[in-house]
Design a protein around this nucleic acid. Structure first.
Length: 278
DNA sequence: AAACAGGCCTAAA
DNA sequence: TTTAGGCCTGTT
C-alpha cells in the first residue's frame, strides 16, 4: 500500500540529504529511496507530507517515529522564530526534520564523518554496508542493512580497507567492539541524561565532542544537543557571538540543523562561505 | 599544487 | 588544560 505520512512542512530533499543521514538517495525529482533500521523505503515529496510507497501497514508506526511525527514542527518553528536570524533562516530551511535513526548506525556514521565531506561519507557508508551488511529484501530488490556491531567487532583493520575510510578504520572497530562487548552500553543511553550519555560515548576512540553530540541528537533524539562543527562555528561567530538565544531552549538540535543548512546553502548573507564540496 | 573536508588523537608545555 | 601537528582519501 502507499501511505501518506502527515508531516507538516517537511522538505524531503533537505531532510534526507542535508547530512544528518547518509543512506538516502535521490532517484528522481521529488523521489528518494534508502534503508533505515533494516527497512527499505521509497518515498516521494507531497504537500505537508510524504508518500511512502508500497509499505506494509505494520510498518507505519515505525516510519512515523523515524520521521519524528511526535514533534510538532509548526510549534517548534514558531518558538525558534522569536530570534530574527532564525526567522530568516526558516524561510528557506525550515522544512528539515530530525530523523530518528538507529544508534549504532549513527555512531559509526558520525565516526566516519570526521574531517570528511558528505559525499565521501556516503560512499564509505555505502561500501561498509555492501561489504558487511545483511540483505534487506524488498519488492524493489535486495538492499543492504547497516552492519551489526557483532560483525564489525569481529573485523581486523586491514579488512576494512576496501571501504576507504582511512585513519577512521581503527575508530570504527573500536566503537563496534566497545558496543558489542558492553564497554559502552549503547542502548542504555536512552535512559541517561545528556551529560551521562555523552560521557559514555566519549569512551570510544574517535568519538569527541562533536561526534558525540551528533550521536546524541540523531541516534538518541536528545534535542538539546547542539553539535558544533566548523559551519556552526561560523554561524556562532558571525550571528551569535554572545551565544545562542534563549528561544532555542529544548530544541537546540533542530535549530542547529536549520542553521547548518542556512549557512551552507542559498543564503545571501552567508555566500562568502560557499561550499566547495558536495 | 595546495588546501580543505560536519574532528580527533597524541605529544608537549 | 590548552595548543600544534598529523592524519586517509578525494576533490577542486
Amino acid at each position: 500500500m502507499d501511505y501518506f505520512l502527515n508531516a507538516p512542512l517537511i522538505d524531503l530533499e533537505k531532510t534526507l540529504l542535508c547530512g544528518q543521514a547518509f543512506r538516502w538517495k535521490k532517484i528522481d525529482e521529488g523521489l528518494y529511496e534508502g534503508v533505515a533500521h533494516n527497512h527499505y523505503l521509497k518515498l516521494s515529496q507531497a504537500e505537508d507530507g510524504a508518500v511512502l510507497h508500497n509499505i506494509c501497514e505494520k510498518d507505519i508506526p515505525f516510519w512515523e517515529n523515524y520521521f519524528d511525527l511526535q514533534t510538532d514542527y509548526k510549534k517548534v518553528l514558531e518558538q525558534l522564530s522569536q530570534d530574527s536570524i532564525m526567522r530568516e533562516a526558516i524561510i528557506n530551511h525550515g522544512g528539515i526534520r530530525l530523523l530518528r535513526q538507529e544508534p549504532f548506525e549513527t555512531l559509526i556514521s558520525f565516526i566516519i564523518s570526521q574531517n570528511n565531506n558528505i559525499k565521501r561519507i556516503s560512499g564509505i557508508v555505502e561500501r561498509l554496508c555492501d561489504e558487511f551488511g545483511e540483505d534487506v529484501v524488498s519488492d524493489e530488490g535486495v538492499y543492504k542493512a547497516f552492519p551489526t556491531a557483532e560483525v564489525l567487532a569481529s573485523l581486523e583493520e586491514p579488512m576494512l580497507s576496501p571501504i576507504r575510510a582511512g585513519f577512521r578504520n581503527r575508530y570504527i572497530i573500536d566503537g563496534a567492539r566497545k558496543v558489542y562487548y558492553g564497554d559502552v552500553k549503547l542502548y542504555d543511553l536512552y535512559n541517561l541524561s545528556y551529560d551521562g550519555a555523552k560521557a559514555e560515548l566519549l569512551k570510544i576512540t574517535g568519538v569527541g565532542n562533536k561526534v558525540a553530540d551528533c550521536v546524541l541528537l540523531f541516534g538518541f533524539y536528545k534535542m538539546e544537543s547542539f553539535p558544533e562543527d566548523v559551519w556552526i562555528k561560523r554561524v556562532l561567530s558571525e550571528f551569535y557571538p554572545k551565544g545562542i538565544p534563549l528561544c532555542f531552549k529544548g530544541y537546540e538540535g533542530i535549530a542547529q540543523q536549520i542553521l547548518f543548512d542556512y549557512i551552507r546553502n542559498n543564503s545571501e548573507r552567508t555566500e562568502k562561505y560557499a561550499k566547495s564540496n558536495q
